[in-house]
């Protein structure tokens, strides 16, 4: 019955599903960043001709999803489920995209950890025999997130050094049993962790304990160490959150060294001045589906542990004085 479970939290697939097609479609700021050349397409106008940024975000998600299908060489009819999530209230960017895609839709919310949660669920559905192919997508947009979580765009606000800049773009992938591409071998769905960080301007600090917890549980369940991976990708802890994460992991006896990379700390250059780095559901999704997949295809990385992190507060909980819970979902990508 539970042959596919290892340890307490981890799933090990018997026939690891593959990512057979992916597409990342990013905004201009992301395109100018250090990882710009890895993205599949850049839209120069972050509003994409729309008056409302929410409509632009939707466009990023839907176009990324359609182009991922093209990359996988399949049509909507060949896909059994469309798993998508985003940061908007009631995940409207996902559901509105699902409306026009016409694929049975599973909506997920894990804030900025949507990428690995979506891919994990897709892999479980495929390996479990419940689906041939699953389309996974997410998107985020600087302006929609600012409007929903913070202040009007043109307001005179001085950013804190720990603030993170929500990335604009959409990213999607097709997970299938058959085809070419890296395999998803393990999945560790994380617990929601809250170590009392109340500062919504320091999401990296709020999410670092969740990243540490999921990482350690994965190591424990699969009996692995950092030495078993070529890259450990977290996202989006950003600059300060990453430091806290490495310290917490060190206290538990693991040193990640040069193997650790954080999506939030990598998307923008220091000259682009986004405070501590990037965030947003598309941040870890795009770094994973563009940078990591392409470097895996070149053979630079063979085994990657991806740990996307999400900060699960909203504007109300912050105003009501609650702390920010964090979550982190992990998956292992393998070549071959």
């Amino acid at each position: 019955m539970t042959a596919k479970r290892v340890g307490q939290f981890t799933v090990q697939f018997s026939q690891p599903p593959r990512i057979v097609g992916a597409f990342t479609l990013m905004g201009p700021r992301e395109g100018q960043g250090p990882l710009g050349k890895y993205f599949d397409a850049i839209v120069d106008d972050y509003m994409w001709g729309e008056y409302q940024p929410e409509k632009a975000e939707r466009k990023f998600l839907e176009h990324a999803a359609r182009r991922a299908l093209e990359r996988a060489g399949v049509s909507e009819n060949d896909v059994d489920y469309f798993i998508a999530g985003d940061l908007m209230n009631q995940i409207v960017s996902s559901t509105f995209s699902a409306r026009s895609l016409g694929i049975p839709h599973i909506g997920v919310f894990a804030a900025c950890a949507t990428s690995t949660l979506g891919l994990s669920l897709a892999a479980m559905l495929v390996d479990g025999g419940f689906a041939r192919r699953v389309l996974v997508a997410t998107a985020s947009h600087y302006q929609t997130a600012e409007r929903q979580y913070r202040y009007p765009i043109e307001l005179n606000i001085q950013r804190k050094p720990t603030n993170q800049w929500t990335a604009t773009g959409g990213a999607a992938a097709v997970v299938a049993a058959e085809g070419e591409g890296p395999r998803i071998s393990h999945v560790t769905v994380g617990r929601v962790m809250d170590w009392g960080v109340k500062d919504a301007n320091h999401m990296g600090a709020a999410m670092a304990p969740a990243a540490m917890d999921t990482l350690l549980r994965h190591f424990q369940d699969t009996n692995t160490t950092p030495a078993d991976f070529d890259l450990i990708l977290t996202g989006d802890l950003a600059q300060h959150g990453s430091k806290l994460f490495r310290e917490l992991v060190k206290r538990e006896g693991h040193t990640l060294g040069g193997k650790h990379m954080d999506a939030g700390a990598s998307l923008y250059s220091p000259e682009q001045q986004p405070g501590a780095g990037a965030s947003g559901a598309v941040c870890s999704a795009s770094v994973l589906l563009a940078y990591v997949l392409k470097e895996m295809a070149k053979g630079r990385y063979r085994r990657v542990l991806a740990l996307a992190t999400g900060c699960l507060h909203n504007a109300l909980t912050t105003q009501q004085g609650d702390s920010c819970p964090g979550v982190c979902h992990a998956l292992v990508l393998e070549n071959g």
């Binding site: 050094p161 170590w195 009392g196 960080v197 320091h202 300060h240 430091k243 806290l244 310290e247 917490l248």
Partner: peptide, 10 residues
């Protein structure tokens, strides 16, 4: 942890 976060805050 709160102490660590405060101590390491930029």
């Amino acid at each position: 942890y709160a102490r660590l976060v405060a101590q390491w805050a930029p």
